[in-house]
Design a protein around this nucleic acid. Structure first.
Lengths: 200, 200
DNA sequence: GAATTAATATGGACACTGTCAATTTAGAAT
DNA sequence: ATTCTAAATTGACAGTGTCCATATTAATTC
């Protein structure tokens, strides 16, 4: 009797809605994610989602949480496999994040569309902190430095966020003809790394 | 006869719409800027704007263009007044941009909401290039360097964009208790500057 | 097992939105 | 003066998020 005998009650509509919403997000962007469209895709009435998500914000927030968790696990996994040096770790961190953003642009964008999200969500902020903390921990490896770890982290975190966003939105393309994206990406991380690992 | 004798034809509705739209943007954010609301604020029918802007995108794009121009002139002015050293110039550039973003968050946000804008607008991209080119020119001052000017520019440009966005959206606050915003801001620019002005 | 309760889904309604289309107005051009 | 054209009007349409009363089913209690 674990298969649903009737169709009135869906069974686990919540997960089905999230799945459908994520696929719409991936395919058509955040604007295309509407409560009614998601419900239609699942084959359910337009008011059914209200039983599982208070409002549209709540649905999108859950998508963002899931995405942060997904990205966080990617990063943690890659960091563990990386060589021990701080610059190697930093490069793995940046490469993983950039690669994720470029290959899943709509998901990545959602992470920073705070006006569509439940900004006070503890889950959301927690899932983001996991990633930021991984960066902090990586940078903390460097003992002898007179720049605070936090300043370095914020500088790197900011640069990554800005770089990926602009790459995704096509704001960096026209100026990238000579140098390939991968090389450019490496170059700007180099610039920051040089500042982070100040030679004394 | 320069004052309108009748009320049917507005006279210069286009400017009035832009002004109203900008004030709604400032006060209530991009979500609140709707064609109908803007029309209502100007006291005109809900379809009148269609005569001056093809669609909502066109209206928002014009707001973004105006904002880029405004910011660009601020930066050019401050750069001229700044001392000659490259690090001084860079700091003026960053300070002006960050100050603008923090004091006009909704306008600044609009600049990067490319999904709301006419991405192929030559005017829009041109107005942005003015700022980016100012950064390029500033960095080009540094002759003896084996990092390309473009890499430096993109690194700085990216970091600024990410930093301001996260500050605006409140994603950096909780981690900023010890150090004031101004100090932190200076610190992260320091990190990047150190990478840019590599000591040999 | 039967009855009650709680959770879940339904369709209709409302006030919005952007964008059409047909129409009206009034200033400009001939 | 008449025509033409730009700019405004109202009305309509499909779509949205959210609320509401209703219907259905599952879970719980007796």
């Amino acid at each position: 009797m674990n298969a649903k005998s009737s169709t009135y009650h869906h069974g686990n509509l919540r997960e089905a809605l999230l799945k459908a919403a994520m696929s719409i997000l991936d395919e058509s962007g955040i604007e295309a994610v509407t409560i009614r469209q998601v419900a239609r895709k699942v084959g359910v009435g337009h008011s059914a989602p209200a039983n599982h998500f208070a409002d549209k914000r709540a649905l999108l927030t859950q998508l963002a949480i899931d995405t942060f968790i997904e990205l966080g696990e990617l990063i943690k996994r890659d960091l563990q496999l990386a060589p021990q040096g701080i610059s190697e770790k930093v490069r793995v961190f940046t490469d993983t994040l950039i690669e994720f953003g470029l290959s899943q642009p709509n998901r990545y964008r959602l992470l920073w569309r705070r006006d569509y999200l439940d900004n006070d969500s503890i889950e959301l902020n927690g899932a983001m902190d996991v990633i930021y903390d991984a960066l902090l921990a990586t940078l903390a490896t460097d003992k002898k430095s007179n720049i605070s770890v936090e300043s370095k982290a914020i500088a790197l975190w900011s640069m990554l966020q800005g770089y990926v966003t602009m790459r995704i939105d096509g704001n960096l393309e026209p100026k990238q003809d000579e140098v390939s994206g991968k090389d450019r990406q490496q170059a700007i991380v180099d610039v920051l790394l040089q500042g982070i690992l100040e030679k004394e």
